[in-house]
Design a protein around this nucleic acid. Structure first.
Length: 714
DNA sequence: CAGTGAGCGAGCTTCCGCTTGACTT
């Protein structure tokens, strides 16, 4: 039976499998499960709530081939090493694979091995210290899985019944939506207040510098109007500006930890402007391997991780690298970094696999985007093991009358880890001060009063909502990007210049869920769930008991809401002035699977539907309308084209505003660029109409803009 | 930075967390 005595080692990721196979060589076969193979079916609840919450597990759709292959290989193997990730989900994956194989070949021998890094020594060590499957951990995963199923598959149908088919709710997505809605409300409720600052333009020995008013009559100045600022300026006329105090403060700036998934997404967003999905897609490419010369090289470690830990071999390599190129910045001992409380630490931090492959040295083998992302990963990692930087800030106080003006200048006195930063280098402008002495007089050449408005909370972006979710322990590295996608797919939120903005639908859903299920729509729900799962893992609680405590009251509430909540189906439908060309009735704007569309008000007698016309086609001799379009499969960015395509080939990727150009009458679009910000522009290339969108900055118009967006985006 | 072209929607959906490709329901 065992004609081939190879040992079969099973991991989750195929890229990992390739690497490990290379390390182990002869005598081993390494296969990948590609995640879970066994799970609850998608089509039904599949949890027997009457009988101890027994789950009904099936082979995941699309994974039968993989499972079959593993079972076949098992027949001819000496033993199987179950090496899925060292976390709760990984334990369950191993457990299910073992069960599936045992069903067919009961005599196969299994060992569970775990490693938290992919290095030859870690793998050898893991093989030498195998263990049994941890059934408590498996039970915790089962409890988590079933609870999420019960919550999701009971809440969603309430939304189908009361609001609209196809909607969804769940422990994670609904809390994320709540956070987004609450932030939006704060943004709306914020009232900007006017305030003024006063800058003095000063000069000493022909060197100019500026200082800000920081004290007036020994108090922090509160300047509400131009009048107040002008009064102060008037007071200072003909008075002497004298240097009152000079202070020097040195500051140690420590390098930061190598990236976790969440931190990488945040850095890629702020440094490179990538949304989370894009970051993960590019990181996956770097992880799976890039052709460099004739070799395929996995350039980074696994990109879905919550850990800042670094393999000791990699620490050795990076220290050698630093010693060679930045010898003075090598600390005596490696730097270690703390982790999130709930970190499962199954993988290393995200780091380059070969530190000597510098971003510059492999630039030609990478796409631009790959190179940028690799650069920040490489720089963050190398700098994390270097000495701190030191800055020195000189603050100068200048007194005049009842006023104190202050200026400061910061310079780096030891660059430390910053020597290695290029893509991650900070781009601060520095303020150079002339040599000054206490008691010296300086010349004032004028004042710059400036009007400001207090700014309220900012909306969430991919990066900041993920940061918040991670801090609250909600979601996992593998789900951060998909959480945002699902909220978008459901039309609960839209992206507006990288900001995440709830739609009317999103707010309606959120209101219903919060009112009906306050316990679940709560960040503490997940925290408490995790505590219970910990107890299950520690063998201090039965998973069934946990569900028995949760489910009956929850189900009671589900039934109650289903019975009592009034249906608001069609609440989003809107009458329009568009007339059905088939029957003459008015058309209604509705939200469908592919976005908003117009349906005939005479349904079901008249089943006419069409896209929402956004504007008239600007082409000469064309009577078409501009509608939202997308590439096949709904892929790519939406763009705007003519209904007369292909006869009319008009195309634009700027969304038509509901306004016509005051100069030529064609439609206006909104454009954004870095210098100008948002502005209106005429679609007609022969028309030069340009206008800054002033009201865009005005908070009062915000909800209107959002509504427009949510209605039109398709 | 430039380039981006199907046509449908009116119902059978949905969860979270693992993992990558992509003719099967």
């Amino acid at each position: 039976m065992k004609d081939n005595g190879d040992i079969l080692l099973i991991v989750e990721s195929p890229a990992k499998a390739r690497t490990i196979e290379k390390y182990l060589g002869k005598g081993y076969q390494v296969e990948a499960s590609m995640g879970h193979l066994i799970d609850l079916p998608k089509s039904r609840l599949a949890v027997d709530v009457e009988h101890d919450y027994t789950p009904e597990y099936i082979t995941v759709r699309g994974k039968a081939k993989i499972l079959k292959n593993l079972i076949q290989k098992a027949k001819r193997t000496e033993k199987i090493l179950l090496a899925s990730d060292n976390d709760r989900e990984g334990e369950a994956i191993s457990y299910h694979i073992k069960n599936a194989i045992l069903k067919k070949y009961p005599e196969v021998k299994f060992e569970r091995i775990v490693f938290n890094e992919i290095t030859p020594s870690a793998i050898r060590e893991a093989i030498g210290s195998s263990r049994e499957i941890d059934h408590d951990k498996v039970a915790a995963q089962k409890a988590r899985r079933i609870l999420d199923r019960l919550v999701g598959y009971h809440l969603s149908p309430i939304l189908w019944a009361k609001v609209k088919n196809g909607l969804s709710a769940g422990r994670v997505q609904s809390v994320a939506l709540r956070l987004l809605c609450e932030r939006e409300q704060e943004v709306e409720e914020f009232i900007p207040e006017e305030y003024w600052t006063l800058q003095a333009n000063l000069e000493k020995s022909n060197k100019k510098f500026t200082a800000q008013l920081v004290e007036y009559k020994k108090q922090k100045p509160v300047l509400k109007s131009q009048r107040e600022v002008e009064a102060i300026v008037k007071e200072l006329k003909n008075l002497d500006f004298v240097v009152k105090d000079i202070r020097k403060v040195e500051k140690i700036i420590k390098p930061k930890a190598p990236y976790t998934t969440s931190k990488l997404q945040q850095a890629a967003a702020s440094r490179l402007g990538y949304i989370s999905r894009k970051t993960m897609r590019i990181a996956q490419q770097l992880y799976e391997g890039i052709n460099i010369g004739s070799d395929r090289v996995g350039l980074i470690t696994y990109m879905r991780t919550d850990s800042t830990r670094v393999a000791s071999s990699a620490l050795g390599q990076v220290r050698d690298f630093i010693k060679q190129y930045y010898a003075s910045e090598l600390p005596p001992k490696p730097n270690y970094y703390s982790m999130a409380k709930r970190a499962q630490d199954a993988h290393e931090a995200i780091r380059p696999t070969y530190v000597d492959k510098t971003p510059e040295s492999i630039k030609d083998s990478l796409s631009k985007e790959q190179h940028k992302l690799y650069s920040i990963i490489w720089e963050q990692f190398v700098s994390s093991q270097m000495n701190p930087a030191k800055s020195s800030t000189t603050s100068v106080d200048v007194e005049v009358g009842a006023c104190l003006f202050r200026t400061s200048s910061t310079k780096m006195i030891e660059k430390g880890f910053q020597k290695v930063l290029k893509q991650l280098a900070s781009k601060e402008k520095k303020n150079v001060l002339p040599k000054l002495l206490v008691g010296e007089q300086v010349t004032c050449t004028g004042f710059n009063p400036e009007q400001h408005f207090t700014s309220g909370p900012s909306r969430y972006t991919d990066a900041s909502i993920i940061k918040t979710l991670e801090e609250k322990g909600i979601g996992r590295p593998s789900t951060y990007a998909p959480i945002i996608s699902v909220l978008q797919d459901r039309y609960y939120i839209v992206r507006k210049n990288k900001q995440l903005v709830p739609t009317t639908l999103g707010r309606i859903i959120n209101d219903i869920l919060i009112k009906s299920f306050p316990d679940i729509l709560n960040v503490n729900f997940t925290a408490e769930m995790e505590n219970k799962l910990d107890k299950i893992e520690e063998h201090n609680q039965e998973w069934i008991a946990m569900l028995k405590e949760f489910y009956p009251p929850f189900k009671h509430q589900v039934d109650h809401v289903m019975d009592t909540l009034e249906s608001i189906k069609g609440v989003l439908d809107e009458e329009t002035d568009f007339v059905c060309e088939k029957c003459g009735k008015k058309m209604i704007k509705k939200l469908g699977r592919f976005g908003f569309f117009l349906a005939c008000g005479g349904f079901p007698e008249c089943r006419n539907t069409k896209s929402v016309p956004l504007a008239d086609c600007p082409q000469d001799n064309c009577n078409g309308k501009i509608i939202t379009r997308r590439r096949q499969g709904g892929r790519g960015r939406e763009f705007y084209g003519c209904t007369n395509y292909p006869e009319c080939e008009f195309i634009s990727h700027f969304k038509p505003l509901n306004q016509s150009c005051p100069k030529c009458g064609k439609f206006l679009v909104e454009k954004t660029d870095k210098k100008r910000g948002s502005y209106k522009s005429c679609i007609n290339p022969e028309c030069d109409y340009l206008h800054t969108i002033d009201e865009y900055a005005n908070e009062n118009n915000r909800s209107e803009i959002v509504n427009e967006e949510s209605r039109n985006s398709a």
